[in-house]
Amino acid sequence: MKRRLLLIPAALAALFLDAFVLPALSSNGIRPLFTLSLAMAATAVTAVQDGMLIAIFGGLFTDLFCNPYLGLSAAAYLVAVVITYGFVRKNEQRRALLLLFALIGAVAAELIIFVFSLAIGARFDAHRLLSATLPSIILEAILTYPLAALYRSREKGNTLYK
């Protein structure tokens, strides 16, 4: 439990990067969601509960600070966590597939945000989808890999994904 509580500061640090640092450094609208990558990495390495914790805390705080729709990011991150968990659980010995699972999770999360935005009247922008969202998804998936490795090194003997 104590170990899980430590995830909250990690989620807040990820939020800080997502909400304040990465937007200042982003170019061409490409903004990978660091919290999402962290949640997926935690799910892949230890347990789905870890990923959920990061997704809910990180997502809610992201929404509170940056988004007008409270809960949207948290819901999207949770979807990614569930999907990642579903895939990882069935392929526990195939670490190399993590990138693919993370990619699917990131696509699902971005899809939730995209569909929700369309539902509340946002304009469909194919160019933005291809030039900003798609590279962001790829970066999120790629980012999951080193984060998982980092997480794994801290979770010796307690890893789901060895």
């Binding site: 347990a47 789905v48 959920m52 997502g59 729709y69 809960g71 819901a75 949770l78 939730i112 929700f116």
Partner: peptide
């Protein structure tokens, strides 16, 4: 159980997002 919690949380969060929207 975690999966169910996650799914319920997702639904609640989406409703919350819609509510704030």
């Amino acid at each position: 159980r975690p999966m169910w919690i996650a799914l319920i949380a997702i639904v609640l969060l989406v409703v919350l997002a819609g509510f704030t929207a």
